[in-house]
Design a protein around this nucleic acid. Structure first.
Length: 651
DNA sequence: ATAGGGTTAG
């Protein structure tokens, strides 16, 4: 039949291919296919190959395969097209079959090397280690190993299996190594946490390109080695937006948000255009700092550059930034503006945002909408929801979320989810129930679980449970100062000053330092930072202390009595009082009162939890001075207005 | 056809 094709059928082939190229839908494709069968064009290798590629493009893989099996002399390229497609499909096994088929059917193996990276990738996706080794074996027996793409793909496959040792051996046996071989292995080591080995390779490699530096910076950042990341960053002569983003996110991850923000500024000065990942990481730094002005600038930048909010993380990063800067309405505004293209991350950011503002009911409503739209929640959604219930004191709702997460959505709770539910129950006063969950969960209780019980015991004045929880927490995290502080709080509260002293000396012995409380406030575009009794910029200290004196006297007229129960030291009442009155958030507030216009809201960010005395102090100030005060503490927001706090004194 | 950066989380 094929032999009888003449110049006129060649025209038919050309025609068919032209039509195929214009074809848009699967049904059109099927019509063309039918036509090709009628005219026997399917037996023409070229036309049929074209048909196969178009089927692949449209994702109709079954169809592609059935056409393929009728091709009389398939060439390596058509195998390559199919293998490539199947590797990325839900059925990567087919590409291994096709590979075997190819080896037996093709007489001339020229061109098969193009398929090998895909076949190796398919083995990786199938977690078929032995098959992968077999393919590797075949490669070693041929000249294929001299193809850099093939040899590098072998390394890549072993890394995907998590077999760094095998990858290293394949790397060592490569006849030639190019920069990609080195980079692959370096990233492999970094992902496996072998950062020293990665560095050795990095130092050893004959030539480096940009990717080598970027990979090292990112790898160091992910393992908490900011200084080393900085070293590599300094070594890189050329930097692109990924180099900068790697360094910025290293800072973000290791809680140096200010450095991250400065680095972003430097990048802009050098004329490097930020793309979506760069903006997302700087937004996360800004969220940490609570610098809403900077955040608004980024938001405007995104709008003018028309960067897509529907794909990727831009939407959720913006929502998170506004929520963490205390502007929950702006967060909601962004959330609404992307109503047509929301992904689960956008919902999660909004739910968690509502949670930290104590808006539990609103978070639950949002979840309800989400369910209505059939958007599949994930484990982070439930962390947000449980947190929302916890902050809002919604015990039954929290229990319900914990239940449906498992029963309706088949999500196996992680230790964090148990932590949330323990926090929820204990905070609401169900200390015994919380202990029950802690004892029965399929994990060893971690520090945070015990700390949840501990702080709830403080709140509900249960010394016995509290003391035990504190001891457990200290056992698990002897370096964490907050556990000692809470334990000594318990003793202080019951007047057990000897025990307070013991805790303090144990802290000294173990060289555990108490993290100093620290509050910051943004005034006229500049951030001012305060610690107990002083301003970091010392020239403000006197002014602030004297203002604070005035405020305290005025509040006392309104019935303010300092709550001394939370001061740890065994000192005279007067000493306690003076210590309490200069807590960092009070300092920041006093500064805010004098330096912002009357009636303007005051935003403060604090690194620790706000203490009970500061809390009642802020409530009174909000009424007496008629100011809205927004404080973000370690865990959540407090909105003070007209004598009340949004947390309803439940925090 | 093989190598590099991003969100939400007790």
């Amino acid at each position: 039949m094929e032999a009888s094709f003449s110049s006129s059928s060649l025209m038919l082939v050309t025609q068919a291919v032209t039509i195929l190229e214009k074809c848009k839908t699967i049904s059109e494709l099927r019509q063309i296919h039918a036509q090709m069968i009628k005219t026997n064009l399917v037996s023409n290798t070229f036309a049929a190959s074209k048909l196969v590629s178009f089927c692949c493009l449209t994702g109709d893989l079954d169809h592609a395969l059935s056409v393929f099996h009728r091709i009389q002399n398939p060439n390596p390229f058509i195998y390559f097209t199919l293998i490539n497609c199947f590797t990325e499909s839900s059925n990567p096994l087919e590409s291994v079959y096709l590979y075997a088929h190819m080896l037996t059917c093709l007489e001339d193996w020229k061109g098969i090397e193009f398929s090998l990276p895909s076949v190796l990738k398919a083995c990786g996706r199938l977690e078929a280690f032995e098959e992968g080794q077999q393919v590797h074996g075949q490669i070693c027996k041929t000249r294929l190993l001299f193809d850099p793409f093939v040899a590098n793909s072998v390394v890549r496959m072993y890394l995907e299996f998590g077999q760094v040792g095998f990858a290293r051996r394949a790397f060592d046996k490569m006849p030639e190594r190019d920069v990609i071989s080195w980079n692959s292995l370096i990233t492999g080591y970094l992902r496996a946490g072998e950062i020293e080995l990665a560095r050795e390779l990095f130092d050893e490699m004959p030539e480096r390109d940009l990717v080598s530096y970027n990979a090292m910076i990112d790898g160091y950042g992910k393992f908490g080695k900011c200084e080393l990341a900085e070293e590599i960053f300094g070594m890189a002569d050329h930097k692109d937006v990924k180099t900068w983003t790697s360094m910025i996110s290293a800072y973000v991850r290791n809680h140096y948000p200010k450095k991250a923000l400065d680095m972003f500024g430097e990048m802009l000065c050098l004329g490097v255009r930020p793309d979506a990942p760069a903006l997302v990481s700087v937004l996360s730094a800004i969220a940490d700092l609570g610098f809403v002005e900077e955040g608004k600038w980024i938001h405007a930048y995104i709008s003018t550059k028309k960067l897509e909010m529907k794909t990727g993380f831009i939407g959720s990063a913006l929502i998170d930034m506004y929520a963490k800067c205390g502007h929950i309405e702006n967060a909601y505004h962004v959330f609404r503006s992307i109503s047509h293209n929301r992904n689960v991350g956008d919902w999660n950011s909004m739910i968690s945002g509502l949670a930290i503002h104590g808006l539990g009911t609103e978070a639950l409503e949002l979840f309800h909408d989400m369910e209505g739209l059939k958007i599949e929640p994930d484990e982070i959604t439930f962390l947000g929801l449980l947190g929302a219930c916890s902050h809002g004191g919604l015990v039954d709702e929290g229990r319900y979320c914990f239940k449906i997460m498992q029963e309706k959505y088949n999500i196996v709770p992680k230790v964090q989810h148990y932590g949330c539910i323990i926090d929820l129950l204990s905070r609401a006063g169900y200390l015994e129930d919380a202990l029950g969950v802690l004892r029965n969960m399929p994990f060893e209780p971690d520090v945070l679980a015990w700390k949840a019980i501990l702080s709830a015991s403080m709140k509900h004045e249960n010394v016995v449970i509290g003391e035990n929880a504190a001891l457990q927490a200290i056992e698990l995290a002897p370096e964490d100062s907050s556990c000692y502080v809470l334990l000594s709080n318990i003793y202080a509260k019951t007047g057990r000053w000897d025990d307070v002293a013991k805790v303090r000396s144990r802290m000294k012995q173990r060289r555990v330092g108490k993290i100093p409380g620290c509050s910051s406030i943004l005034v006229r575009g500049k951030v001012h930072v305060f610690v107990v009794g002083k301003a970091i910029d010392e020239k403000f200290t006197r002014e602030v202390l004297s203002k604070l004196d005035d405020v305290v006297s005025r509040l006392k007229l309104e019935g303010y009595q300092p709550d001394l129960t939370q001061v740890l030291l065994d000192v005279e009442v007067e000493g306690k009082e003076s210590l309490l009155s200069v807590h960092s958030e009070k300092m920041a507030l006093a500064f805010g009162l004098t330096n912002t216009s009357h009636g303007a809201p005051i935003h403060i960010v604090k690194n620790l939890r706000v203490c009970r005395d500061c809390h009642s102090f802020m409530k009174l100030v909000s009424r007496v001075y008629n100011r809205r005060i927004v404080i973000r503490d370690q865990n959540r927001f407090h909105h003070f207005e007209n004598g009340f706090c949004s947390c309803k004194d439940y925090w």
